[in-house]
Simulated scan of single mutants.
Amino acid sequence: MNVRVGALILVAAAAATALTGCGNGMGAKLTYNDTEKTKITDIVLSGGSGDVTVTTGSASETHITRIVRSDGRDPAKSYQVSGGTLSLDTTCGRNCSVSYEVEAPAGVKVGGELHSGAIALVGVGAADVKVSSGDIRLERIAGDVTARATSGSIDAHALSGAATLTVTSGNIEGLELTGGKPLTAEASSGDVELHVLQPASISARASSGNVELIVPKGDYQLKNDTGSGDFTTDLRNIATATNVISVRVGSGDAKVMSF
C-alpha cells in the first residue's frame, strides 16, 4: 500500500545545464515523497545514473523520497514493492534519472548494482552492493557486507559483521570495525586503511598503493608479501594463533601496528 505524503515539486531550469548532473536535455527537478505501509525487509538497487541513500528507523513503514531529473515530463513510478521487497531503479526513461533517500525499518537488507552513482547505507541489517562509477559509504551495519566499486572509493565505519570490500580504482578506508569477524579489503589502484577494534582475521591487498592496518594487541599469524615496498609491524608472528593477518602489496608499503 502506497500513501502520497508530500507535494510534487517542479523546478524548471532556465537552461539544461543549470542543474547539477542534468545533461542531455534534462532541465527539470521533481521531488516526490511517498510512504509504503508494507514492511520492507529487502531493498534491491538497479539502474544507470542516480544516487541511493538508505537509513533505518524504528517504524515499520518505509519513507521514500525520489528526486527525479528529467526533461520536464512527469515520469512513471520508478520503484516497485513486491511482498517485502522494495526495488529501486535509478533509470526512468530517456533523459531521466532518479536518486533516492529511503528510511526503512531496522534490519532491512540491501543488494544490487548501480552503473553510475553513489551508494550510502546507514544502519541496515546487511549489504551486497556494487557500483561501476561512484563511491560507497557503509556505516553501522550489523550483518555481513560485500561492496565493490570499479571506479570509486569505499568508506566503511562501525561495521559489526564480516566484510569484503573491493575497489579497482580508488581507496578503501575502514574505521572502528567492531565485530571481530573476518575482513577482506583489496584495491587494485589505491590505498587500504583499516582500523579494527576487536581481534580478527584480515586479508588486505593493494596492487598499486599502501596498506595500513591498526589492530588490538593480541596473538596473530602474520603473512606478508611486499613487492618493491617495506613491511613494518610491532606484532610478533604467532604460528598457532587463530587470527591471521595477511598483507600483500605490489608497489607500495605495508604497515601493521597495534594499540
Rank of each mutant, 00 (worst) to 15 (best):
T53F: 00
V108E: 08
S258E: 08
T146D: 09
S58Y: 00
A254G: 14
G83N: 03
I67W: 00
T31V: 14
L213D: 01
Q80Y: 03
E103V: 15
I154N: 08
M26Q: 13
R69T: 07
S153I: 05
D155Y: 12
V11R: 14
K181E: 06
G84L: 02
M257V: 15
E101W: 09
S228G: 00
R4V: 15
I141S: 05
V54L: 03
A76Q: 11
K29W: 00
G125W: 11
N237F: 10
I67L: 01
E212P: 00
G93D: 09
A7K: 13
G174W: 00
L30K: 05
A118S: 12
G83A: 06
A13L: 12
C92N: 04
S246D: 15
T233E: 13
S78E: 02
A147P: 04
L183M: 06
C92G: 04
F231E: 05
T55Q: 07
I238K: 14
A142V: 12
L197N: 08
V145W: 10
E212F: 02
R140E: 15
V44S: 08
V249T: 15
L197T: 11
D155G: 07
D225Q: 13
V129G: 03
D42S: 08
V5T: 15
D42L: 05
A18R: 12
S203R: 15
R148K: 12
Y220G: 01
V124Y: 10
A59I: 01
K130C: 04
V211Q: 04
Y79K: 00
D191W: 12
A200P: 10
S132W: 10
I67S: 02
V211S: 01
L138N: 06
K217V: 09
R94E: 15
G170Y: 02
R66T: 09
V247L: 02
V244D: 15
G23S: 14
G123S: 11
I245N: 04
A120D: 13
N95P: 07
S116H: 09
K217S: 13
I119A: 06
S133E: 07
A127R: 03
N224L: 01
A149G: 00
V249Q: 07
T41L: 12
T62K: 10
